[in-house]
Computed example of a mutant assay.
Amino acid sequence: MTVSRLHSTFVALVCAAALLVSLPAFAGHNEEAPAKQAIVLAAFGTSYPEALKSILNIKTRVEKANPGTPVKLAFTSSIIRNIWQERQGDAAWQKANAGVPKDVLYVKSPLATVADLQNSGYKNIAVQSLHVFAGEEFSDLTNMMIGLRSIRALKAKSVPFKQMRLGRPALGMPGDVYPYTDDITVAVKALKADVDEAKKMNAALVYMGHGNDFFSTGIYAEFQSEMQKAYKHPVFVACVEGYPSFDDMLPGLKLAGKKNILLKPFMIVAGDHASNDMAGDEDDAWKVMLTKAGYKVKTDLRGLGMVDAWADIYVKHLKDALAQKHMLP
Score class of each variant (00 low, 15 high):
M1H: 14
T2L: 03
L6N: 10
H7N: 11
H7Q: 12
T9C: 12
T9F: 14
F10P: 03
A12K: 15
L13K: 14
C15Q: 08
C15E: 05
A16D: 00
A18N: 05
A18M: 07
S22I: 05
P24R: 04
F26A: 14
G28V: 00
H29K: 10
H29D: 12
E31L: 12
A33G: 10
P34Y: 02
K36C: 11
K36I: 09
V40Y: 04
A43C: 15
G45N: 04
K53L: 03
L56H: 00
I58H: 11
R61C: 11
E63A: 15
K64G: 14
A65K: 10
N66E: 15
F75K: 02
F75C: 05
T76A: 13
S77Y: 07
S77R: 13
I79F: 04
R81Q: 04
R81N: 11
W84S: 02
Q85L: 08
Q88A: 05
A96G: 04
G99E: 14
V100G: 01
V104I: 10
V107D: 11
S109C: 08
S109Y: 13
L111D: 08
D116G: 14
K123C: 06
N124W: 05
A126R: 13
V127M: 14
V127S: 12
Q128G: 04
L130N: 10
A134I: 05
A134H: 15
A134V: 07
E136P: 13
F138A: 03
D140L: 12
N143C: 11
G147F: 07
G147S: 05
L148Q: 00
L148W: 01
R152I: 09
L154I: 14
K157C: 12
S158A: 03
S158V: 03
P160A: 02
Q163I: 03
R165Y: 00
G172C: 04
M173P: 08
G175C: 12
D176I: 05
Y178H: 08
T181V: 00
A190T: 01
A190D: 06
L191H: 01
K192C: 09
K199T: 02
M201E: 05
N202S: 08
A203G: 12
A203N: 06
A203V: 02
G209H: 06
G209F: 07
F214A: 13
F214K: 15
S216D: 14
G218W: 11
G218P: 07
I219P: 03
I219A: 04
Q228G: 02
K232R: 07
V235Q: 08
V235W: 13
F236M: 08
V237C: 02
C239Y: 10
G242D: 03
S245R: 03
F246P: 09
D247E: 15
P251M: 14
L253V: 07
K258Q: 01
K259A: 01
N260V: 01
F266L: 15
I268R: 04
G271F: 00
D277V: 01
A279F: 15
A279L: 15
A279W: 15
E282G: 10
D283K: 13
D284F: 08
D284A: 06
A285I: 00
M289W: 11
L290Q: 01
T291D: 06
K292P: 12
Y295H: 13
L304F: 02
G305C: 09
G305M: 09
A309N: 13
W310I: 06
W310K: 01
K316E: 11
L318W: 10
K319R: 12
A323D: 10
A323I: 05
H326E: 09
L328C: 11
P329H: 08
P329T: 08
